[in-house]
Amino acid sequence: MQLESMYQDIILDHYRNPHHKGLREPYDAEVHHVNPTCGDEVTLRVRLDGDEVADVSYDAMGCSISQASASVMTDLVIGRPVKDAMVTGDEFLKLMQSRGQVEPDEDILEDAVAFTGVSKYPARIKCALLAWMAWKDATAKAMEGSDS
């Protein structure tokens, strides 16, 4: 049934027990993103250690898809070089824009392949992307900060 294709067990697990949740210090940049259509919000902090993502912490209000996506995202980016994490982010964006037509690269996306079903529901794509967009934004800000 369609519901299970969207709400994979991985998504429900992350939703019920989100990883890395909560705002932590120290951090290099903080952003606040909203989804204007539904009012979902995320406050997200990034700490970099050189070229590596040292920590991502967040406080979010939203649906299971947006909560689970934030949780999976932190698993995929924390402890990795920013460049590699950005590649994963781009791959995830591509998957979300695919309307379910693209075979996801499991080596890159790992748990995030569970969101393939979400990409078939145009109204929910923004939910899945909210935390990723916030992370990209915060990371860009953190890198600007370290350049200057």
Partner: peptide, 27 residues
């Protein structure tokens, strides 16, 4: 979350609205 509620309802053929219904201050 209302989005999750409406998604399950939609799977049963039931159309409702989820969100702040263009009334954020009221919510």
């Amino acid at each position: 979350h209302p989005h999750d509620v409406s998604q399950v309802l939609d799977a049963h053929g039931i159309a409702v609205r989820a969100g702040h219904h263009c009334a954020r201050p009221l919510h």
